[in-house]
């Protein structure tokens, strides 16, 4: 707001010159949405790899393990880049705080990264198979946690749009994890031409889309003021696109076996939808922190 628009004399009872009460988050784009997306992808991919192993799908095992390791590494890179003092990343391991989702998340991320790296390395090199399998098994535990904890990470803030969504966000993220893993499965299948294991990915896409879109629907259906940024503005718009992409991606995935192009398009839509949802959540949070009405009116309504 330019200074010209302000009027000193206009007493503003609802806010202090329209300024934010909260600090708008220092978490940036694309770092935060990318981290959220990569984390959930890694988490679900790891589980997918284990499930594939358990169900005898060696192709998907390797896909799951490699994608999980790569996404974890890339996600950690984005997370580290968000730090004001990246060289102090390891200070995250100084403490283990139940009250800090980021502390818990850091332990999860570090464990998950180690496990997925070991599992992927084993899978790629063919060495130390049993150890790789054991590591992968571990990552099947850390994976869901890694995908789900960011919901708490965001919700456990003063940002109205995030905090008020502590029910929806974990579901949105684990749903997104499933669709992301499905996208990886579909894409790899299309690119390698190995269509044998495509049906789990198709089902994964459908299950994930149901969960993800369900969570989005819950967000949009909420009528409380602090959910407003999910249906208006950039956040609302992105969220609509995300849902459309996810749903169409999941449906298109059903044609994967017939068309590689459909498989690739499905993968792109699923991934794009998931990523867009993360951007939507970020922007909704920013908007809800920037406009003081979300703080004032929601709190003034408190009993």
């Amino acid at each position: 707001m330019s200074a010209e628009q302000l009027q000193v004399p206009a007493a503003q009872f609802e806010s202090y010159y329209g300024r934010p009460i909260l600090k708008v988050t220092r978490w940036r784009e694309p770092h935060l949405p990318a981290y959220l997306f990569l984390g959930e992808l890694s988490g679900a991919a790891a589980v997918m790899g284990v499930a594939a192993g358990a169900t005898g799908r060696p192709g998907l095992v390797r896909t799951g393990r490699v994608v999980a390791a790569a996404a974890a590494a890339a996600g950690a890179a984005f997370l580290t880049a968000e730090l004001g003092r990246p060289e102090r990343f390891l200070h995250m391991l100084r403490v283990a705080k139940l009250t800090s989702p980021m502390s818990i998340g850091s332990w999860i991320l570090v464990s998950h990264s180690a496990l997925t790296s070991a599992a992927a390395a084993s899978s790629v090199t063919g060495l130390l198979g049993p150890l790789g399998t054991a590591a992968a098994a571990g990552s099947a535990v850390t994976g869901p946690l890694l995908a789900a904890y960011p919901g708490v990470l965001l919700a456990n803030t003063a940002v109205p749009a995030w905090h008020s969504s502590y029910r929806e966000l974990p579901l949105l993220f684990t749903g997104g994890a499933l669709t992301a893993a499905a996208a990886a499965g579909l894409a790899v299948a299309a690119l390698t031409g190995d269509q044998a294991d495509v049906s789990p990915s198709q089902r994964l896409a459908l299950a994930g889309a149901a969960l993800e879109c369900g969570a989005e629907f819950m967000l949009e259906r909420r009528s409380d003021l602090v959910a407003e940024p999910y249906h208006t503005g950039e956040g609302g718009k992105l969220l609509k696109y995300a849902r459309a992409a996810t749903m169409s991606g999941a449906l298109l995935g059903l044609a994967a076996r017939r068309s590689r192009a459909a498989a690739l398009a499905s993968a792109a839509l699923l991934a794009g939808g998931g990523l867009a949802a993360k951007f939507a959540v970020h922007r909704a949070g920013v908007e809800s922190a920037r406009d003081p009405k979300y703080v004032v009116q929601s709190q003034a309504a408190n009993p």
């Binding site: 100084r94 403490v95 705080k97 502390s103």
Partner: peptide, 20 residues
């Protein structure tokens, strides 16, 4: 001196004060 150890062995289990 590792705060995690101090968390686990001392009174500041949540790691919000003395241990850290």
């Amino acid at each position: 001196n590792w705060p995690v150890y101090r968390q686990l062995t001392g009174a500041d289990r949540l790691g919000r004060g003395f241990a850290v």
